[in-house]
Write a protein that binds this DNA or RNA. Structure first.
Length: 103
DNA sequence: CCGTTGACTCTTT
DNA sequence: AAAAGAGCCAACG
C-alpha cells in the first residue's frame, strides 16, 4: 500500500484544502498539478493512504456525477448531502454552485 | 446518450 | 529491473 510521494502527495493536499460544502472535479485537480492525469488523481484518492484525513468525498466528476468511492458511492453521496449538497440519483445538482477553484 | 481516445500513476507479473 | 494491466476520469465524435 505504499504510495510514492509526488503526484498523489499534492492531490491529497489540495483535496484537504477543499472547504466544507464545496466540491471539486478530478480534472481541475489534475490541471492544478500541471497534468491531465484525471485518472491518476482518482487513483491517488482511491488508494487514499491516510483516510479520512483527506475528504475524498468532496471530489466529483466533471459530468456532475459523484463518481466512485472506495468505501462505497452511497457513502460518498450521504456525506455530500450532509454538507448541504443536493444530489439526485448519484448526480450533483448545480455542480457549478459548489465547484471550488483553488484560487 | 454511448463509444472511443487520450493521459498518468500505481500495482502486479 | 522491465513490461503489462488496471484505475473513484475527461474530452470529443
Amino acid at each position: 500500500m505504499k504510495m510514492q510521494p509526488g503526484f498523489g502527495q499534492q492531490v491529497w493536499y489540495l483535496t484537504s484544502q477543499i472547504p466544507r460544502g464545496r466540491v471539486t472535479t478530478y480534472g481541475i485537480l489534475a490541471h492544478k498539478l500541471g497534468s491531465r492525469a484525471c485518472r491518476a488523481v482518482g487513483n491517488a484518492l482511491n488508494r487514499n493512504p491516510h483516510w479520512p484525513d483527506v475528504p475524498c468525498h468532496r471530489v466529483a466528476r466533471s459530468t456532475g456525477e459523484v463518481g466512485g468511492f472506495a468505501s462505497g458511492t452511497k457513502k460518498k453521496i450521504a456525506l455530500l448531502r450532509e454538507e448541504g449538497i443536493e444530489i439526485s440519483k448519484g448526480r450533483i445538482i448545480n455542480l457549478e454552485r459548489y465547484l471550488h477553484r483553488f484560487a
